[in-house]
Design a protein around this nucleic acid. Structure first.
Lengths: 231, 231
DNA sequence: TTTATAATCTAATCATCGTTAGATTCTTTT
DNA sequence: AAAAGAATCTAACGATGATTAGATTATAAA
């Protein structure tokens, strides 16, 4: 019965990646379904075979991005390295994640607000439309909850550092947001053909921010350590 | 001949502020001329008496924001205080500027990209339309140039600090972007009814970032110094 | 080979929105 | 008061774009 998808037909992931790229150029509202479809050699109508509507496609892009970043960062929180090592590794994974896929990275920064703009269907709308909306709201709220959880990972590690006396008695929320701002901003200006790799950028940022909050000046970064060596 | 504007009629500034507020909620593409007009009790058509078109209104919002921030930050660069005092004061003025008018502050972060999306008029368009477009492009490019100059103010001060040996031999561009990212991000999450004032947030961020880049640990911030005392 | 269904297309619908035309009202100057 | 121009309005135009209906094609399972 169930047919295995053919190799040459596009799948959800193809569309999500293409959508992210169009979003990066145009922003959500300016990006048309036709633009996105053209990026995978389809017509706009064909996209509706894969996604309920435009909002749902946007959400899918953001979910993929958040899932990936959480998957990279979360394990670091639960290992038993010292706080400074954890923070450095988290900065690395976050920034590398944003720079490896700049389209999705930019969407994570710029398009989240578009999630707030979706309008409820009018009272006279078809039941299917209302159902789609309800489901969307639930998925969106779950997304925001996960986003908050992600940001809280940094808060947890920073708090542990302050409690242990490794970090100065800083305002934890403000530092977490300073950190996240510095990270996210990389997603705004980074270009793959730039002077530095994502890894180098991450190390430079981590150096400065760690030094800014540690009681003892941090150990110099493991100069040419390979990425996995940090985990 | 020339009539003095009546007191109860709306002026450019009113519309620009209202537009910024609508933009903050909806983003540029989702914001309609009707929405903006309603915020100043006008019809959409009336806006065209004050602005050539929607693009031009967006640009006006961004120009106002950039002008204000530059006006606050630029003088600091040219006084003769030590680098650390300058950087702290620049952070203060930048963040206070973003938090005093959150609508314009958010526009400066989120809507600049919309400037890239304006489409050229078709070859068959009216001359007036083509002229408006040409003028828009020129103004837009001037805006970007000024924006770059603004960011360069930070680079200049940081470079001076490194040259003087006050700051560690950091990567100047990366640190400037780290700083700007931390600043701009405040414009994303700050709420006027939050726990801290813009000034307090600025001080906390400046503490951490300065400590992160100074060779000697920075002097503790002038605890309860009033804002103007920094200049 | 037949069949079910996945994937895609063409063509149309429906709503929204930027923009313009032209009339009207309001305020200042003469 | 009359004139001039500024500010605003109503009504419409034209374009765009999300979405749907229904037909068509391709592919894997039977």
């Amino acid at each position: 019965m169930a047919r295995k998808p053919a190799d040459q037909s596009v799948n959800r992931s193809d569309i999500i990646q293409a959508a992210a790229e169009v979003l990066q150029r145009s922003g959500y509202e300016a990006a048309t379904m036709k633009d996105i479809a053209a990026a995978v050699n389809l017509t706009a109508a064909s996209l509706y075979h894969h996604f309920r509507n435009k909002d749902s496609l946007l959400l899918a892009v953001l979910e993929v991005g958040l899932d990936y970043i959480i998957q990279q960062v979360e394990p670091i929180v639960h290992n038993d390295q010292p706080v400074e090592r954890k923070l450095r590794a988290m900065t690395r994974e976050h920034i590398i994640g944003l720079t490896e896929n700049t389209a999705v990275g930019a969407a994570m920064v710029f398009e989240i607000r578009a999630l707030m703009n979706v309008k409820a269907p009018p009272p006279g709308a078809r039941p299917a439309e209302k159902a789609a909306y309800t489901e969307f709201i639930a998925r969106r709220d779950a997304f925001f909850a996960r986003r908050d959880e992600f940001e809280d990972l940094f808060v947890q590690v920073i708090r542990a550092g302050v409690d242990q006396g490794v970090l100065r008695p800083i305002d934890i929320d403000i530092f977490a947001k300073t950190l996240l701002g510095a990270h996210n901003w990389v997603g705004v200006w980074y270009r793959p053909d730039g002077r530095l790799t994502g890894e180098q950028i991450a190390d430079a940022i981590a150096d400065t921010l760690l030094r800014g909050v540690m009681n003892q000046p941090p150990a110099p970064p493991p100069a040419s350590a390979h990425r996995e060596a940090q985990l």
